[in-house]
Simulated assay, not measured.
Amino acid sequence: MHKSSRLMLLLACAALTSQVALAKLPPLSEEAQAKAAEAAAKAAWSSKVAAYQLCVAQDRVASTYRAKRMMAGAEVKPPVETPPCTDPGPFAAAPNLEKAGAHSAPGPTPAAPAAASASAPKS
């Protein structure tokens, strides 16, 4: 009987804690959302920097290998063409357009009237 009461107590505790674990979190504030967006942008930039550094290192290793093979008098085939390494530049956080007041004006876009007049029959 002692073991079954322990089991019941354990199940009751598990049921109560699962209620807390499944509770819905409140939505993020605008400040928290902006912070998360900036963190995501910085992570994306970091991965671009890592890819650039890997590309540069691979080019350096390949050129060293080719130079050593040429010095040894071995036959060296022409290198395979690859896209050039592109430096992502320094990290620049995207400006917050909402706070800067850079909202687009409501209404039709400038291209819409030109498209409408082009389709109108000419007399």
Results as ranks from 00 to 15, higher is better:
A93W: 02
D87A: 05
A116V: 03
P113Q: 03
G101V: 07
A94I: 04
Q33G: 02
E30V: 01
A74V: 01
A23P: 13
S18P: 08
H2C: 06
A21N: 07
A41M: 03
T86C: 06
R6M: 02
L97S: 10
A114Y: 03
L9S: 14
K35M: 12
A39Y: 09
P78T: 01
K68S: 09
E31A: 12
Q33M: 00
D87E: 04
S117L: 04
T86W: 04
R6L: 11
S119V: 08
L10I: 04
P27W: 04
P78G: 00
R69E: 09
A34V: 06
M71Q: 10
K3I: 05
P113W: 08
K68F: 10
E38P: 04
P108Q: 07
S5D: 12
P108I: 01
A12F: 05
K68R: 08
H103S: 12
L54V: 02
L7V: 13
Q53G: 02
L11W: 10
P78Y: 00
V61Y: 09
P95C: 09
A114L: 13
S104K: 13
S104T: 10
A120C: 03
C85N: 01
S4P: 04
P83D: 02
S117R: 14
Q58G: 06
A93H: 03
P88M: 10
Q58C: 08
L9G: 13
A105T: 13
A102Q: 08
A72D: 03
A94D: 07
A94L: 05
E98S: 01
P106L: 07
P84N: 02
A12E: 11
S117V: 06
R66S: 06
R69F: 07
T64L: 14
P121Y: 03
A40K: 14
T109E: 09
A14G: 12
S18D: 12
A115Q: 12
A74N: 13
E30H: 10
T17V: 12
Y52H: 11
S29H: 10
T82R: 01
H2T: 13
A39W: 02
A43S: 00
E98C: 07
A37P: 06
P121T: 05
A67T: 01
Q19W: 07
R60F: 10
M8Q: 15
R66C: 11
V76M: 01
S4I: 03
E81W: 03
A21R: 14
A50D: 15
A74T: 03
K24I: 04
H103A: 13
M8I: 11
A39R: 14
A14F: 05
A34F: 03
G107R: 10
G73D: 10
M71V: 09
M8K: 15
M70W: 06
A14R: 07
P27K: 09
A93Q: 09
L16Q: 02
T64N: 15
S123N: 05
M1T: 11
M70H: 13
P113S: 08
K99T: 02
L11G: 05
D59Q: 15
C13E: 11
